[in-house]
């Protein structure tokens, strides 16, 4: 999409909702340097949300949407869960279809976009809960990876089924007492990052969303690698403060506690050899570009 397409006819500009005027004039579509630092100074691609006050998912959404390298040509696929209540407020095309089939939908979508727009970059990003990704949708999550589908899968891991009221999920910790786990969960947290590696993902990160700069980096990497090589996977801890009995202000501390070196969400990454090479090449090009720009600037001065 070029920005031309969403331009408002001058005659109608003043009667358009201010929210849409801002999207056209102040959003960061087309800005290659966009990132988390734009938050608060530009029109964000997420307007409001209907999550619980203080839910870390809301931070995660803002950071991810600010970090998409190519939002004007990105389509997102969600699933049923707390995230699906946010997607109607997101200013890029997005699909809600069923609970758990997000990676199947994304496979068809990505292929259709490749058929319809050969030679153009159209990124597809899946964003779904842990129940959707690991339990009901696990076969489709993994089969998309086996097939080397070129899109990024992001899992908002809150270690339970939040939207239905806090039931046990495969990513819940062992022993946690929850609805449908009345005597505590009987088995270990499913090791999806390792499974993702074995299933063929090229770039995998397991972390929390406590640091926006880190989220920007991993989201961009995941999307660049998916574009060129194949599937990538991000598992982000977005604690459900409601179900674990925390207050609105306590989400950030909960994430900081969970990312300590011996904890479940200590930063962990896996990058395949081709992905390492690709990221190194991109970094080198970026450096060259910056150096050239600097030189140009100094010549001009």
């Amino acid at each position: 999409m070029s920005k031309e397409r969403i331009k408002i006819a001058p005659e109608f500009f003043d009667i358009m909702p201010p929210e849409y005027q801002d999207l056209v004039t102040k959003a960061t579509y087309g800005n290659e340097q966009r990132g988390w630092k734009d938050i608060g100074t530009s029109k964000e691609l997420i307007e409001e949300h209907s999550l619980c006050a203080g839910c870390p998912e809301s931070m995660a959404f803002r950071y991810i949407l600010a970090s998409l390298p190519n939002p004007e040509d990105t389509v997102m696929v969600g699933s049923t869960g707390c995230t699906s209540l946010v997607f109607p407020h997101v200013a890029i095309h997005n699909i809600h279809s069923l609970f758990g089939n997000q990676n199947a939908v994304a496979s068809g979508l990505k292929r259709a976009l490749m058929v319809r727009f050969p030679g153009r970059v159209k990124d597809v990003v899946v964003l779904a809960g842990d129940g959707a990704t690991v339990d009901i949708g696990l076969d489709m999550t993994m089969q998309a990876w086996f097939r080397q589908e070129k899109f990024t899968t992001i899992c908002f891991d809150n270690e339970l089924y939040a939207n239905t009221g806090g039931q046990e999920s495969g990513l819940m910790q062992k022993g946690f007492v929850a609805k449908m786990a009345p005597v505590g969960k009987g088995f270990e947290k499913v090791r999806l990052p390792e499974i993702a590696r074995e299933a063929g993902c090229h770039y995998i990160v397991n972390c929390t969303v406590s640091k926006p700069s880190l989220i920007e980096k991993v989201v961009k990497n995941a999307i660049y690698v998916a574009r060129e090589l194949g599937p990538t996977y991000l598992q982000l801890y977005t604690p459900c403060i409601l179900e674990i009995g925390k207050n609105s202000m306590e989400g950030l501390q909960e994430m900081r506690d969970a990312e300590k070196p011996t904890e479940r969400f200590a930063y962990k990454e896996y990058i395949s050899e081709p992905a390492k090479q690709l990221l190194a090449e991109m970094a080198a090009k970026d450096k060259e570009k910056k150096a050239a720009a600097k030189q140009l600037a100094s010549q001009g001065a």
Partner: peptide, 26 residues
């Protein structure tokens, strides 16, 4: 334009949906 074997009918119909959402004749 494109063709593949899905992993189950449930998945295939989701894949078809994705392709149609993306503007393909499916």
């Amino acid at each position: 334009g494109d063709y593949f074997r899905g992993e189950s009918e449930f998945a295939v119909m989701g894949q078809c949906a994705g392709a149609a959402f993306g503007g393909a004749r499916v």
